[in-house]
């Protein structure tokens, strides 16, 4: 789905929740996933003026998970390592978005090309 403005955040969070509920994810993990999603969406809105998010359900053995792919066409991230550090921010925020989101999900992958955009993929397993 497409996210372009502030008001899109809440419906997006609800969509993620629907998926998480569908695979019977526990409440705490649900909250973690949605919070992480919220952080990443916020980044996308702030630095890239929105982008596209894909939500899908994946499975690995007997474990199910939700996979979110965030794609934007923003300025990209100059130094991913630095951006992943706690407390680093180019905007006026706490600098917890990326590293915090990473801690909240099971798998986290970030690719960024300067001037072309950033793609972040996160996976949260139902039990993990």
């Amino acid at each position: 789905m497409q996210v372009e403005k502030d008001q899109d955040v809440v419906p997006f969070r609800n969509r993620v929740k629907e998926f998480a509920v569908k695979i019977k994810m526990g409440l705490v993990n649900q909250t973690k996933l949605i919070t992480a999603a919220s952080e990443l969406v916020r980044n996308m809105l702030k630095y890239a003026n929105g982008g596209e998010i894909e939500i899908e359900i994946i499975s690995r053995g007997r474990d199910n998970g939700v996979k979110l792919t965030f794609k934007d066409k923003g300025p990209g991230i100059l130094d991913i390592k630095l951006a992943m550090q706690d407390g680093y921010s180019t905007g006026k925020s706490l600098g917890l978005g990326l590293p915090g989101a990473k801690r909240l999900v099971s798998e986290f992958d970030i690719k960024s090309i300067l001037g072309q955009g950033t793609t972040i993929t996160v996976i949260k397993w139902a039990n993990g």
Binding site: V28, Q30, T31, K32, T35, L96, G100, R103
Partner: peptide
Amino acid sequence: MQPAVAITLIELGL
């Protein structure tokens, strides 16, 4: 605060 929210905030580093 909900328990799940508290756990998430701690994990987030906040």
